[in-house]
Amino acid sequence: MQTTKPTVQKHGIKWFDSFTKVMLTVMVTLLVVIFISGKYMYAHDMEAGGTDDKVNTMATDVSKSEHHPFTELPGDAQVGAFSVANFFAGLIVGHHWEMLFCKRAPKEESSLEDQAE
């Protein structure tokens, strides 16, 4: 695993650099919106189901058939599947984002191209 050595040695590791602050702000904002929306929908007896499922049901009402996803994930298995997928997706995006957009010391520029290949 590569680290940006000059930054670590001269300035130490920053807990909250500007990138982390922006990302945390966006994440918290989205979570607050979801939380408030969820509370509102619960209080007003709204179903909060997905539109995909709603329209799929509308379609099968017309076709008089049964619709089903390829894989059924009951209960918390769905949360687990999404968490695993998103965790590793985040790692991959982060890895490539760092490779492409991270500010680097000049020495690392040459190794960047090797990694990209």
Binding site: L30, I36, H44, E47, G49, V93, H96, W97
Partner: peptide, 23 residues
């Protein structure tokens, strides 16, 4: 990076209060 981002974004169900559903 873009492939994985599309995977996450297109599976990210967000609630919309005005309609009481998610997409």
């Amino acid at each position: 990076m873009v492939g994985v981002s599309v995977f996450v974004i297109s599976a990210m169900h967000l609630p919309v209060v005005v309609t009481g559903s998610c997409s």
